[in-house]
Design a binder for these strands. Structure first.
Lengths: 330, 330
DNA sequence: TTGAAAGCGCTAACAC
DNA sequence: GTGTTAGCGCTTTCAA
């Protein structure tokens, strides 16, 4: 900046002002400075500015994995909103692991983000301490934590899965299997499984057809493998619910390979409203938790807390998941 | 840090040293300082450190979209490598738009990243100027640019598609349609389409069955719609190639809905080796461009340029895509 | 092994 | 409308 100032024949302060939109610099002076800067290949140093202004324009976001379309959608919705207002997303993958999440929180906080968005409501106790003492807005998403740290944009994974079971039972299914949700690290998957078990019991049905798929994320391939087990070991099953659409679609493909008719012999339902659910043949009955809306709403929440009236949003903003019926489990 | 220093009864300099791994501080002093810091809820300010050290530990990455599994895989591979060495990824989505890419480059460079990774080899001229004058390593990926700015980790989209066409022709297909690649903004898609046309002509076949799907990214839904057009307008087609597996799978589902046998009546091939390709029934013949390997290799390249002997990597590192044959086009 | 002074590149606050 | 001074929180440098 000093170089630009010398080259333009002004003080550094004037150069600084010339780069701010609404500051008092003569038009000609500003134009001249900007041209000089461009010619010199000068790029503004945000690092120094951040230090001085105590304002990083970063919003930290931790998701389990960028490789999951649903979490990617949430990040996308979030970044669309906050980037339009000059903020930048600082993204971290926790790999469905709370201790990795703790490390990430530590690392990200060093960058002095102005807010931090988390996926899920389970964290290590040190992570909670770090978050609280950071003194910035904390938003937990994709869940309704029992003890929220700050704000929340989410839904109950368990209750949502209960609605799905209710639908299957209403449509006449009785011997329903659940694929996924066994890994303790995927708390949302485990919650869905818990909701499944609870709903089955509430309907007086046996909830003993639980097929794990191991470490998250649930994939199509793992869903297909799990379905093989179901067909081998649980021949009386008349419906299968996947912890996600990916697992459900995998299960569907295994049925296709074995000549089992869906939904005539076995109904299949998923979770998440991935694109595959609407395109597959048969299309999958699923639950749309509106990941992008989670992101948008979180973004607007962050901005309203940061820039304006934090009171515009309630502390807990509930997403209403929608049951989407399709051919696989009408 | 000053607070910690006062609380621990030492100078700020000693506190600073206590947080570095390999500096000369007495064990007891260091332990005492770290405890004091933890108790005070002190979090190291990376911003100030970066300013002073002129070292941000950021690697900037621009991809067309996080919502594409393949690009997400590349980012994942890259971050696995560079984060293990203390760097953090600064991610931006260009939305397949070079002018948005230019804006992003400008924004990201303000954060003073130590290297920048781009997707593709087409950029605005101002973007090129910014990249060159930034004086940091620039790595272009997912393509083999005609005029590389710096390093490259990629493959030829056109040549790879030519290999796919060669396979289809060898297996007896003659009237082959191509779905996608019409949007000028998706240069990789357009390159694949160009490769398709070139290969068809080289085999003496008509390359006039081109069905566009509009703005990227190619989706399953758009692939299904395009297949509807193919079946309506081009009844003689005996094979279809999708610009990506998503489009190809969409096309497959449309065939299933219309009772058209794949591959007996129409063969279908995709591009990208998404999970859907191996799981779908029939499984899709596709091309594995190894997105994660692109990320890994790019990461290792960045680190070797930054930390050590930059000479360890050639300027252009070619990825060899692999043709993966499956049921849909054996 | 520890400390004091100087400064990274920018901007708030105050002159003029 | 523009310039001067001081300082954001850290680390380099030099001295003790």
């Amino acid at each position: 900046m000093k170089d630009v100032a010398v080259a333009a024949g002004v003080s550094v302060m004037t150069v600084s002002r010339a780069f701010k939109e609404d500051s008092s610099v003569k038009r000609e002076t500003r134009d001249h400075i900007r041209q000089t800067a461009e010619a010199l290949g000068y790029v503004f140093d945000g690092t120094a500015s951040n230090l001085r202004m105590k304002r990083s324009d970063f919003v930290a976001v931790i998701i389990p994995s960028v490789n999951s379309a649903n979490f990617a959608d949430t990040v996308r919705g979030l970044s669309d909103v906050v980037e339009a207002r000059g903020r930048q997303i600082l993204l971290g993958n926790s790999d469905y692991d709370v201790s990795r999440e703790e490390k990430l929180i530590d690392q990200l906080l060093r960058r002095r983000p102005e807010a931090i968005v988390l996926t899920g409501g389970r964290h290590t106790s040190r992570a909670r301490k770090l978050l609280v003492s950071a003194g910035i807005p904390v938003i937990e998403t994709w869940d309704l934590p029992e003890e929220p740290i700050g704000h929340v944009v989410g839904f109950s994974n368990a209750a949502t899965m209960e609605a799905m079971v209710a639908h299957l039972v209403t449509s006449g299914r009785r011997r329903i299997a659940f694929i996924g949700g066994d890994a303790s690290s995927d708390t949302r998957g485990a919650d869905r499984r818990r909701g499944f078990v609870r709903a089955m019991q509430a309907h007086g049905l046996a909830a003993d057809h639980l097929v794990g798929i191991g470490t998250p994320p649930a994939s199509m391939t793992k869903g297909a493998e799990a379905m093989k087990q179901v067909l081998r070991n649980l021949p009386d099953v008349d419906a299968v619910v996947g912890v996600s659409d990916l697992a459900a679609f995998g299960a569907l493909t295994e049925c296709m390979r074995q000549g089992i008719l869906v939904p005539d012999q076995i109904a299949i339902a998923g979770f998440g409203a991935y694109e595959i659910a609407s395109v597959s043949v048969p299309a999958l009955t699923t639950i749309d938790v509106r990941p992008r809306e989670i992101g948008h709403r979180t973004g607007r929440m962050v901005l309203s807390i940061l820039d304006g009236d934090g009171a515009a949003f309630p502390q807990i903003s509930k997403i209403e998941p929608m049951l989407t019926l399709a051919e696989s489990a009408p």
